[in-house]
């Protein structure tokens, strides 16, 4: 088949063909292949459950695609509560006319990420909708994970303690910068790649090293600014961040200079922050830096009771300002 047609979502022969040739072929595992109406699972202990929908455009970008995002995004949400990703569901909403080759590449990309993190897709759904009803392809994934953090030690946005240190796992803003640079109307070229990556191995290593992660969160839409503000608000603490310590790679800086943006507002898909006891920072950084996607992990600030609910940025020369939540759409500044 060359393109996906409405009949592929009809539930009949064409749907079966699509499922067999694509989804079962690349996602196949003993649960999925049972082909029941629902997947039957056995899990011990506490379970984490999350869902996310993915609508990124363009479908393919430097460093990934919508499929990779769909697996990574959900698996990372599980990792952020200290859960090992086990099972995913996957719903595709396909615009008729999508080239089969694109869908195949996306599915292959998902299969590769599943192998990376050890999770399995155990149930799914496929709909094909008329032209214009969705923008090429939307994917929803829900995920189930097994809590691996110690009892009473689950990371939570309610748990930041005054005196904690804040670590960020890598340079910020890559994913948002890549998607922005890909916006055709801006006519920008860059080798910058998205940071889209599975984070569970790093979180697992932190748990195994006995690091007390009071809070863990991956910075997604709204960037580091949204993440820090949500923490400050939820735990009613002040986050005092040293601007000069936040890792930033040159191409993201270049894009920010060109268009007048702040890297704090850009989305990420493989970057996370930790709030942890200050005395554990050195060990935590050592653990993180063994992973290629965390080599420039850094301590960026502290939790205090200075101005509860606010994120305060300190410059290297002693002045400060409040880091706000990003508002509205990201429009290039001309002034």
């Amino acid at each position: 088949m060359k393109i996906i047609e409405l009949s592929h979502g009809g539930g009949g022969a064409e749907t079966q063909q699509l499922i067999q040739q694509l989804f079962y072929k690349y996602f196949g595992n003993e649960i999925l292949l049972k082909a029941e109406d629902a997947a039957v699972l056995s899990i011990e202990g506490q379970v984490a459950f999350t869902t996310d929908s993915f609508t990124v455009s363009p479908l393919f970008f430097k460093g990934g695609d919508i499929g990779k995002l769909a697996v990574v995004g959900t698996v990372n949400d599980l990792a952020m509560v200290g859960a090992e990703p086990l099972y995913l569901s996957c719903g595709f909403m396909i615009e008729e006319g999508l080239p089969f080759s694109s869908l195949k590449k996306i599915v292959q990309s998902m299969a590769k990420e599943l192998l990376n993190c050890g999770a399995k897709i155990v149930c799914g759904d496929t709909k094909v909708v008329p032209r214009g009803a969705v923008d090429q392809l939307f994917i929803n994934t829900s995920g189930i994970g097994q809590i691996k953090s110690l009892p009473n030690a689950m990371p939570s946005a309610h748990n930041l303690q005054v005196g904690d240190a804040i670590i960020v796992s890598r340079d910020i803003g890559r994913h948002g910068a890549v998607i922005l640079a890909a916006r055709e109307s801006l006519n920008l070229q860059s080798d910058l790649e998205s940071d889209c990556t599975v984070l569970w191995p790093a979180v697992k290593a932190l748990i195994e090293a006995g690091i007390e992660c009071h809070a863990l969160r991956d910075a997604t839409r709204g960037g580091l600014a949204a993440l820090l503000n949500e923490w400050a608000e939820t735990s009613q603490v002040c986050l005092e961040i040293e601007e000069g310590k936040i890792p930033l790679c040159e191409p993201v800086q270049g894009l920010c200079e060109l268009l007048g943006f702040d890297a704090y507002d850009f989305a990420n898909e493989g970057t996370f922050a930790i709030s942890l006891p200050a005395e554990q920072v050195a060990t935590a950084l050592e653990v993180l830096q063994q992973f290629e996607f965390c080599v420039n992990a850094a301590e960026i600030g502290r939790v205090s009771d200075f101005q509860p609910g606010l994120v305060v940025l300190q410059t290297p020369w002693g002045s400060q300002r409040v880091l706000e939540l990003p508002k509205g759409e990201l429009l290039p500044r001309i002034c």
Binding site: L186, N187, L188, S190, D191, P251, G254, L255
Partner: peptide, 9 residues
């Protein structure tokens, strides 16, 4: 032109 790894005409 190149601005720290981002190019544009």
């Amino acid at each position: 032109v190149d601005t720290m790894g981002v190019q544009r005409q």
